[in-house]
Structures are given as C-alpha cells and as structure tokens.
Amino acid sequence: MPTEQKESAPSASVPVTGYRLILPDDWAQIPLRHGTEEAVRRILDEAFSRIPPGSPEDKVGPYKRELERRFRAAVSRVQEGNALDLYLPVRSEGNVNLGASIVVSETVLPRRQEQAAQLDPTDVAVQLLAGDGLDNADLSSGELDGALAVRREHTAPADPDRGAGLGSRRVEYIVSVPDDPERWFAAAFSTVGGGDPRDDLADALVEWFDAVMATLRWRRG
C-alpha cells in the first residue's frame, strides 16, 4: 500500500484543485476525463499477460474479446454519468472475485445568492443524496479532512438492463469542498459481496471503504 507523504499545511485561501485517496496497489485508477484509453489498455494488457503461456488460441481469443467488451462497457456506463475517476480491483486474492468499484464525481450546485445564507450544508448534502428517492437508506454525517461529509448506505436490486446481474451493497459519501459551498465531492462504492450484498464479504468491504474514505485529503493550488 502506498504511504502518504508529510506536507506543510496549505493556506485555506488556496483553492481546492483535487483530492487524494490511499488505496491498495491492486486497485487501479481509470481517469474518465483525460487518459481513459491509456488506462484501459494498460489494465487489459496486464490481465492478458496473466494468461498461461501455451493456452489454446481458440479458447484465449474469445475470452480476451469478451473480457475487453465487458470491461469497456462498464467504463462507458460510468463515463455517461460525467464522473471524474473510476477505481477497480485489478487482481483477485486467491479465488475471490471482489466484484467492487469506486466512482468519484463532483457536483456543482446552481448559484443562488439569495438562498446561500439560509441553506444548511448538511441539509444540502442530504437533498443531493436523496435525489433518487431512496427510502431505505441509512444516513449519517461527520467530517473528512475538515469538511462536512454525509454518508449513505443502501442495497440496490439487480438491474440486468444496466449490466448489474446481482444485487449490490452501496455506500456513498458526499463531501462539501472547502471554501466553495457550491461544490460537492462524491465517492460511491458498490460491491456484490460473495453474491449476496448482505453477506460477510460485503460487510468487510464496506468497512474497508469507510477506512479508505478516512484517508481523503484535499489538493490545493
């Protein structure tokens, strides 16, 4: 796992220009605005390199084409949502398929000066998270790197039309970007667990994602 370097405290007047998350080395970042194709090609090439030498081409060829098709389709679906980054586990531990992803995006609210003084940031965050009408979500709030953060957890049913053949456990953090009340950082985690979004593996991966989000740090300047 990469280590975090010590940095001098940045001035609060310097605007936030990005973020950092500390993830294990077996998770790959796919930028969705620039450099997407290079990242996708690198991940596919690494996956193909693990195919045992001498494997029959009539088996390997269709496998590689199907893997690439499904992988590119998954990336394209996330890009349609105008996200910033997609993180995926690119290696399995033993025979366990993590079946998980993290999508990072940014939401910019319309500027409404007449309401700015009346809106409580927590209320705004909850409204953003509740925009899809979920009634069974667990909501909580706190701080990440000095910024207000609202966490939502829920279970989503299978949706084969969107490539989700299994139900999934989802956890979303929406975080107020410091010094800019119209900007909100969002990180959405999804896992199918071991095939049941409420099983022990799903529980462990949700705890892991909460630990990852605790490493969130803002980049300034």
Rank of each mutant, 00 (worst) to 15 (best):
residue 7 E to K: 11
residue 10 P to H: 11
residue 12 A to Q: 13
residue 16 V to C: 08
residue 18 G to K: 12
residue 19 Y to L: 09
residue 20 R to C: 07
residue 21 L to Q: 07
residue 22 I to M: 08
residue 29 Q to W: 03
residue 34 H to Q: 10
residue 36 T to Q: 01
residue 39 A to N: 14
residue 41 R to H: 13
residue 48 F to Y: 12
residue 50 R to Y: 11
residue 50 R to G: 03
residue 52 P to G: 07
residue 52 P to V: 08
residue 55 S to Y: 12
residue 55 S to E: 06
residue 56 P to E: 11
residue 57 E to L: 13
residue 57 E to G: 10
residue 63 Y to I: 05
residue 64 K to D: 01
residue 64 K to C: 10
residue 65 R to F: 05
residue 67 L to I: 09
residue 68 E to R: 11
residue 69 R to I: 02
residue 78 V to T: 15
residue 79 Q to I: 01
residue 79 Q to P: 05
residue 80 E to L: 11
residue 82 N to D: 13
residue 83 A to I: 00
residue 85 D to H: 15
residue 90 V to M: 04
residue 91 R to Y: 09
residue 95 N to Y: 02
residue 99 G to F: 06
residue 102 I to F: 09
residue 107 T to I: 15
residue 108 V to Q: 05
residue 113 Q to G: 15
residue 116 A to D: 14
residue 117 A to I: 03
residue 118 Q to W: 03
residue 118 Q to M: 13
residue 120 D to I: 09
residue 124 V to F: 01
residue 125 A to T: 12
residue 139 L to H: 15
residue 140 S to T: 11
residue 142 G to V: 04
residue 143 E to C: 02
residue 146 G to K: 03
residue 150 V to F: 10
residue 155 T to V: 15
residue 156 A to C: 00
residue 157 P to I: 10
residue 158 A to R: 11
residue 161 D to Y: 05
residue 162 R to Q: 10
residue 162 R to V: 00
residue 163 G to L: 08
residue 165 G to Q: 13
residue 169 R to W: 01
residue 173 Y to E: 04
residue 173 Y to T: 04
residue 174 I to L: 10
residue 178 P to L: 11
residue 179 D to G: 06
residue 181 P to H: 09
residue 183 R to C: 02
residue 185 F to I: 02
residue 191 T to I: 02
residue 195 G to P: 10
residue 200 D to F: 04
residue 202 A to R: 04
residue 203 D to T: 11
residue 203 D to G: 12
residue 209 F to Q: 11
residue 211 A to T: 02
residue 212 V to R: 15
residue 213 M to A: 12
residue 217 R to W: 03
residue 219 R to K: 15
